[in-house]
Computed example of a mutant assay.
Amino acid sequence: MMRNTVSDIWKLYKKGEKIACVTAYDSTSALLADRAAVDLLLVGDSLGMTVLGHDTTIPVSIDDCLRHSAAVVRGSEKALVVADMPFMSYHGSSHEALKNASRFMQESLVSAVKIEGGEEVADLVKKMVQGGIPVMGHIGLLPQAVLVKGGYKVRGRTEEDEQQLLKDGLALQAAGAFAIVMECVKSDAAKRIVTALDIPIIGIGSGLGCDGEVQVMHDILGLNPDFIPRHAKKYLDLAEQINGAFTQYKDDVKSDRFPTQENWY
């Protein structure tokens, strides 16, 4: 089976077919999403919260992302796998950023990387693409800048902010980004930005006008029992089902109902 490439994502966009993307962090979740024919798997630095127990993405290291990205690649066959470059892995010299990006391509074997930012990272995106590294951009709410911005804030509320987002998108497009994630932008502003650009815009919390959607796996599967963000839809309540299974297992062990003769050698 041939894995999706950036050209396949482009073909979906040109046909007007929405691009389905979900985060994945390990080989099992990658296998299951891949079997559902999800177009693109994003190994998000959101693994800081979903897997590693942090409050933000800031503590996530490049080694964390490399390890989880490699697992997702091993677990999938068809989906395009894109890896987030984590906090401060591309904000130093362009030489260091290119070296870090190349590690994802050579060590994790992902098909592309994603970096946050607009005009300020456009030159770096251009250098990465010229070096043979496909890049997905990310504008709107930028989780890696949460400490600077003072929290998670919706973008595109003012005409000035919308124009800056448009400039960011155009800069990334001109630099050669094959697609852009647009996070938590007011839907009317997001639609105008999508119309002005000529590459796929994959939304999260930015309305139906986007060319596709990305969601965090834990949110749509209901794996976080305490919080579901506004931009997500809970398709299952796995947290409750898993808790029930663990409870039944514990009770069976304590009451000698498990293991039975069928379960030992």
Rank of each mutant, 00 (worst) to 15 (best):
T57N: 03
L66A: 11
G44P: 00
S89Y: 13
D84W: 15
I62C: 00
V60S: 01
F87M: 03
S76V: 11
A83Y: 13
M88L: 15
G75C: 02
V72G: 15
S46A: 14
V43K: 03
C65A: 14
D64Q: 05
T57M: 13
M49S: 14
D55V: 01
L52H: 10
L47I: 10
K78Q: 12
H68K: 08
A83V: 06
H54P: 04
T50N: 05
S69P: 03
F87G: 00
D45F: 14
G53N: 03
M88C: 08
V82G: 01
R74W: 01
V81H: 14
V60R: 09
M88W: 02
R74P: 00
A83T: 10
S69Q: 03
L80E: 09
I58Q: 01
V73T: 12
P59A: 04
I58E: 00
A71V: 01
E77T: 11
V81M: 11
V72R: 04
D64I: 10
H68E: 08
G92H: 14
G92D: 11
T50L: 04
A83Q: 12
H95A: 15
A79G: 05
T50I: 05
K78P: 00
D63H: 12
D64S: 04
V81T: 14
D55Y: 01
K78V: 10
V60M: 09
H54K: 02
Y90L: 13
S93K: 09
S76W: 10
E77I: 06
M85P: 04
C65M: 15
R67H: 13
I58K: 01
V51I: 14
M49G: 12
V82D: 10
G92L: 11
H95L: 14
T57G: 06
Y90V: 09
G44H: 07
V72T: 08
L66G: 12
S89Q: 07
S69K: 07
V43I: 15
C65T: 13
R74E: 08
A83H: 12
M88N: 08
R74V: 01
T57R: 09
S89F: 11
S76M: 11
L52A: 02
F87V: 14
D45M: 06
H91W: 07
L52E: 02
T57C: 05
A70M: 00
D45C: 13
D84Y: 15
Y90I: 07
G53W: 07
V60N: 03
G92R: 14
M85F: 15
G53V: 12
V51F: 04
G53R: 03
G44F: 11
S93L: 06
L66Q: 06
T57E: 05
R74I: 00
S61Q: 06
S94E: 14
V43C: 15
T56W: 03
Y90C: 12
V73S: 04
S93Y: 02
H91D: 10
P86S: 07
M85V: 09
S89A: 13
H54Q: 09
A70I: 01
T56P: 10
H91R: 15
S76D: 06
E77H: 11
S46F: 14
V72W: 00
V60Q: 07
V43T: 12
S61D: 02
L80Y: 07
L80N: 13
H91K: 15
M88T: 10
H91G: 15
D45N: 03
V82N: 13
